[in-house]
Design a protein around this nucleic acid. Structure first.
Lengths: 207, 207
DNA sequence: ACCCGGCCGACACCAAAGTATGATGGAGTC
DNA sequence: GACTCCATCATACTTTGGTGTCGGCCGGGT
């Protein structure tokens, strides 16, 4: 696996340089930016990664950048690192999912531990995302009718009931169902149910 | 539904009194304590509730109390309210699951909003917990063999395979399986699979 | 000693699921 | 027009699932 990438966005040149040296020494790739915009222009890697982010930046501030990243759908773990941190700012960052919130001057070991944690989190997120994407792709490869059938059978309806629900015959349901099992690569019906749950189909129960 | 309960733990008498008045005025029940120990001695209610917690307390400090509550298994949302808050303290509290972290002097509206959020979170947590407990109770009512069978069928094995796995005949598996469906009150096999997932049985997949 | 419940199994029967083959018609593409 | 894909249905057959009743074995408790 390619080595993880640590992004750094900070407007202080001396911080950027010392961070870069520190991070490279630990064996991580680094990508350094001095503004939010230049970071946003850079593509996300497919390896585990994290972002060390200052709050005070020339253009967008750190918290706004965090929000922007979230709304873009990318979920890269963020370690804040700021010279002027107060409590409300910390709360906002943490509630928005920040991994850590450190203040300058920072302790090297503390920062490195935080980055390690963030990378680990990223690794898990990527793994989970790839699993989810795989399922979504398979689901997308289903035809409209097959999707209908999958939703209903995953909800626990019998083939006969599904047929009645959709206004088609039971035998046709079976045909679609077979196709669904193939295309979703489900080894068993239990498998399919779990997939449906992960895809957000079929509300679990409503007793 | 009984009205929510707001617990307050603060060593400052004037804060306690003003909070009590404010909270009661909003229609919540209140339980006021001046130390962590006296709070711990008080039983948890079964209605939605939350805790407004100062960090500086005579005995245990707020963060330690938070940790203690978590390890006790109770999950009551916590709104911190402290006079001397710094960034590391805030990070620690938020990472440990705190709902909010406010500093004195506090704004009434902000506090009330935080409490409302915490109560809502508690409501959801209670609902989820009661659903989970229901399932656990049902699962606990199964005999040992029935549990075995449930695990395996929820994993997607056929009755025949389950029988082979357990060294019993297929017909016996069917009997156990029928019992499981009854006792778990599963309307369909899909239902049972979802229950198994919520109970943490049957690892989803490992392609 | 007795009963109860868990556990195992068998026979029978029916419902449901899964598969194979074949066929029709429509939509869209090359 | 030939081709592909989707959707639909049918017939026939096999496997699996679900239920019922019956019986036997064993261990714990009244």
């Amino acid at each position: 696996m390619a080595s993880p990438v640590v992004f750094v966005v900070d407007d202080d040149i001396s911080v950027r340089e010392s961070l870069e040296a520190l991070l490279r020494h630990e064996g991580w790739q680094t990508e350094i930016f001095e503004s939010a915009q230049s970071f946003l222009a850079c593509p996300r890697p497919l390896t585990p990664s994290c972002l060390i982010l200052d709050v005070n930046l020339p253009d967008l501030n750190g918290l706004e950048l965090q929000e922007r990243i979230r709304s873009d759908g990318a979920q890269i773990p963020i370690v804040f690192l700021t010279g002027y941190g107060d409590v409300p700012m910390t709360v906002r960052a943490m509630k928005a999912g920040a991994c850590e919130f450190l203040t300058k001057p920072f302790d090297n070991d503390v920062l490195l531990a935080a980055v390690r944690g963030a990378i680990e989190r990223s690794r898990e997120a990527l793994a989970d995302e790839s699993r989810t994407r795989l399922l979504q792709d398979r689901f997308a490869s289903l035809s409209g009718r097959e999707r209908d059938v999958m939703k209903l059978v995953a909800k626990g309806l019998l083939n006969k009931q599904v047929g009645h629900e959709l206004g088609i015959s039971e035998i046709t349901v079976k045909a679609h169902r077979g196709k669904v099992m193939q295309k979703m690569q489900a080894r068993s019906f239990a498998d399919l149910v779990n997939m449906a749950a992960k895809l957000g189909l079929a509300p679990p129960r409503r007793d």
